[in-house]
Structures are given as structure tokens and as C-alpha cells.
């Protein structure tokens, strides 16, 4: 296999595996068996070991974990990560609604979502590729845990479709 062929194959495997990851972890509709998936992943890992210069930052092989990190650099959030005010009674929600209505002087539509018991993380995608994942920290700056976050299968390493050049999203 020439260098050029290796690069083509690496790219091809990356694309394929990303598609399968998405189908498996986000849509929950896999189209290939775990065995086939592992098989392709191993091929990618092997090629990447032989041609480290072609390892892509969004490579699905990063899912199994890269090199250990000693510490997590502190990173300033571009947009502060504020926490939400908490309420424990329905009365407090009514008060919240009243405050909002009063401030905007018009009927307001709300979105209700589930509050998952977990931790918050801020993801940055640059040109569609996951480039940074930072914990909330104190809201102003958090820890860069990108390599660890890349192992979470439901987080895409590359976006699909018509993505903006820069996207920050939290979860």
C-alpha cells in the first residue's frame, strides 16, 4: 500500500465509521454488526499506527482512548457557563412566569426539558470537527477534558450536514 492509498483508506474508514457511530449511538439504528464495526475500527487503528501523519482529529479510533493526561489545562469559556436558578415549588415557577411576562410585555412560549443528573460540558466544533470540550468549572473557566469526552460515543467527532464554521453547544 502506498502512502497515498493509505491516506485514502484512512479517510474512507473514518467516514464509514462515523456514519455507523451516528446510526448506532444517536439514532439507535445500526446497519452493520458489532463484529464488522470492530473489524473496520481495527483496520483503521492499524493504518493509523503505520501512518501517524494521517491520523485525523476526528478519527473514530479516538473513541477507545488516547494517551493519558497528567492534568487538564484550564480554559476560559467564550460564553460564561452560568447555572440556572433552582426552584422547588410550583409557586416559584408561577412567580418566574409573572416576572418574565412583566419584563417582555407579551405572551411567552416556553420550552420544557428534562434535567439530567450529570455534569455540564461545553463542546466546540470548528469547521464541523470537535475541537474542544470543557467542564463548567466556575462558569468562567473550566477544565479541558477533550480527550476524555471523545470517548463518549453519542458525541459526534464530526458534524453532519450544513454546519456553521464555529459552533458551541452545551450538554
Amino acid at each position: 500500500m502506498t502512502k497515498k492509498e493509505a491516506k485514502i483508506r484512512i479517510d474512507q474508514l473514518c467516514e464509514e465509521l462515523q456514519e455507523h457511530n451516528y446510526r448506532y449511538y444517536v439514532l439507535a439504528q445500526p446497519v452493520i454488526s458489532d463484529y464488522e464495526f470492530d473489524h473496520k475500527l481495527k483496520e483503521l487503528e492499524r493504518l493509523e499506527a503505520a501512518y501517524p501523519e494521517f491520523v485525523r482529529p476526528d478519527s473514530p479510533s479516538l473513541r477507545v482512548g488516547g494517551e493519558p493526561t497528567k492534568n487538564f489545562p484550564s480554559v476560559k469559556h467564550k460564553y460564561p457557563m452560568l447555572s440556572l436558578s433552582n426552584s422547588y415549588s410550583l409557586q416559584e415557577i408561577e412567580e418566574f412566569d409573572a416576572r418574565v411576562q412583566k419584563a417582555v410585555k407579551q405572551p411567552v412560549e416556553y420550552v420544557c426539558e428534562l434535567k439530567y443528573d450529570g455534569l455540564s460540558i461545553s463542546l466546540t466544533y470548528t469547521d464541523g470537527v470537535l475541537t474542544q470540550a470543557v467542564t463548567r468549572g466556575d462558569g468562567v473557566q473550566g477544565d479541558d477534558v477533550t480527550n476524555n469526552v471523545k470517548t463518549i460515543r453519542s458525541i459526534p467527532l464530526r458534524l453532519r450536514g450544513n454546519y456553521p464554521p464555529q459552533l458551541e453547544i452545551r450538554g
Binding site: 473513541r63 477507545v64 482512548g65 488516547g66 494517551e67 493519558p68 493526561t69 497528567k70 487538564f72 467564550k78 460564553y79 426539558e113 439530567y116 450529570g118 455534569l119 460540558i121 461545553s122 463542546l123 467542564t135 477544565d143 477534558v145 480527550n147 476524555n148 469526552v149 471523545k150 470517548t151 463518549i152 453519542s154 458525541i155 459552533l167 458551541e168 453547544i169 452545551r170 450538554g171
Partner: peptide, 26 residues
């Protein structure tokens, strides 16, 4: 989950079945 994300070895993190729902674009 917080403890898992602060582990030094990503291979160990990979073994913990973390999931992530996203909910806000700032």
C-alpha cells in the same frame, strides 16, 4: 460522571458508558 471525566487515562473513561444530551447553544 464528573469523576469519570477527570480520569487520567481516556481508555478507562471509554469503559464507562457515559452518554450526553445537548441542550443549549450559547
Amino acid at each position: 460522571a464528573a469523576g469519570s471525566l477527570k480520569m487520567q487515562d481516556p481508555k478507562e473513561v471509554a469503559k464507562r458508558k457515559l452518554d450526553c444530551f445537548l441542550y443549549y447553544i450559547p
